[in-house]
């Protein structure tokens, strides 16, 4: 693996850097930089509007969803160019968080299973952020065991009628479209009776109810379906082949969630660099250094593991189970890092 830019990559980087310097919403840079660990929020501005404006600007200049084909709103860029863009976009990339599900999971699923006309219609506004998408898979009885889901889709002429409930749907409250996994045959083994659709979230019979999270915010929702009608043309993949379709989505989910995953390490390192303990600077304390070094190599290991995945992808290999490592490691690491940052402050950490 090579970590140096080739001359072409260096030229691409320079072009990206110059465009970002001239166009990014700099007034929010500081807030975005500090926002990586918690929710992204901006003082005195609506984050959704700022994010959509930045995404549209990028799309107009050909910097949105770089790795997508041009006809679907992308740039036809290589996986490496996409990484270079992400490096250069830096804190402004955090404005993309509400598009991750659409760009990372719904888009690739549409690309693999929608008809050509539909792809040309739905993908460019998804890439440009004008339309936001959500993923409606999980249910109260189908979480880890997602194939246990119960939301029914019944055929009625050229339409399907949907009844049931989804839960944990991130961004449903501001989404325009969603991909929906349903049960179409309850009489066969659970993986064999599922079918995937996409739908307009403003369809009659769709009701979104926010769930209040531990943080106090409400980023995900319950979504209820009462006799919601979806045309058969919005079916993705064959009837009862929804499990296979969902695997495409989930494989892409692992990639997109695993890749730029936050670990909390850079923040902890900065924090320890400025924290003064009773016996001197925290960063000079042996115990602190040992903890930091352990997390440092996890963070760098994750970073280079995702770079290896990207170079495998650019050689035409399929994403594999190694892409689960990001979520597996970072998920508990970020909790441990945050706990340690509190611990270092003693009673004041509370």
């Amino acid at each position: 693996m090579n970590f140096d830019d080739t001359p072409q990559e260096a030229a691409f980087r320079a072009e990206a850097k110059a465009w970002i310097a001239a166009n990014a919403p700099k007034q929010y840079e500081d807030e975005l930089r500090k926002a990586s660990l918690g929710r992204v929020a901006l003082q005195g501005a609506n984050i959704l509007e700022v994010a959509k404006a930045w995404q549209k600007k990028k799309a107009d200049a050909g910097w949105a969803c770089l790795h997508w084909p041009k006809e679907y709103g992308g740039r036809g860029a290589s996986p490496i160019e996409r990484v270079i863009w992400q490096q250069e976009e830096g804190p402004f990339g955090r404005l993309s968080s509400m598009f991750i599900i659409g760009h990372g999971m719904c888009g690739p699923t549409m690309m693999a299973f929608a008809g050509e006309e539909q792809k040309r219609k739905y993908l460019p506004p998804l890439a440009s952020g004008e339309k936001v998408w959500c993923q409606l898979f999980s249910e109260p009885a189908g979480g880890s065991d997602v194939a246990g889901l119960r939301t029914r889709a019944e055929k009625n002429g050229d339409e399907w009628v949907i009844n049931g409930q989804k839960i944990w749907t991130s961004g449903a409250h501001y989404s325009d479209y969603g991909i929906l996994l349903t049960r179409t045959d309850p009489t066969v083994a659970k993986h064999k009776g599922l079918t995937m659709f996409f739908l307009d979230m403003k369809s009659p019979g769709v009701e979104v109810r926010p769930i209040k999270q531990a943080s106090g915010a409400s980023d995900f929702n319950e979504v209820y379906f009462t006799d919601v009608r979806i045309p058969d043309s919005q079916r993705l993949g064959n009837v009862n082949d929804g499990w296979n379709v969902s695997l495409t989505t989930l494989m892409n989910e692992r990639m997109s969630i695993g890749a730029g995953v936050a670990t909390g390490f850079p923040e902890l390192f900065d924090f320890c660099n400025s924290l003064i303990l009773d016996d001197g600077p925290a960063i000079e304390n042996r115990a602190v250094r040992s903890k930091l070094a352990n997390w440092a190599v996890k963070a760098s290991g994750l970073k280079y593991t995702s770079m290896r995945a990207i170079s495998a992808l650019s050689r035409g290999e399929r994403p594999g189970p190694e892409n689960s490592i990001g979520k597996l490691v970072a998920g508990s690491m970020i909790q441990d890092v945050a706990t340690y940052a509190l611990d270092l402050q003693g009673a004041a950490g509370a």
């Binding site: 970590f3 760098s300 290991g301 994750l302 280079y304 593991t305 290896r308 490592i325 597996l328």
Partner: peptide, 22 residues
């Protein structure tokens, strides 16, 4: 598998730095 993979990734970066005298 996770710890061996993370180590391998750190090693590849080390190999790049070593072989290019970075």
């Amino acid at each position: 598998y996770v710890s061996a993979t993370l180590a391998r990734s750190n090693c590849y970066y080390g190999a790049w730095a070593l072989s290019t005298n970075a």
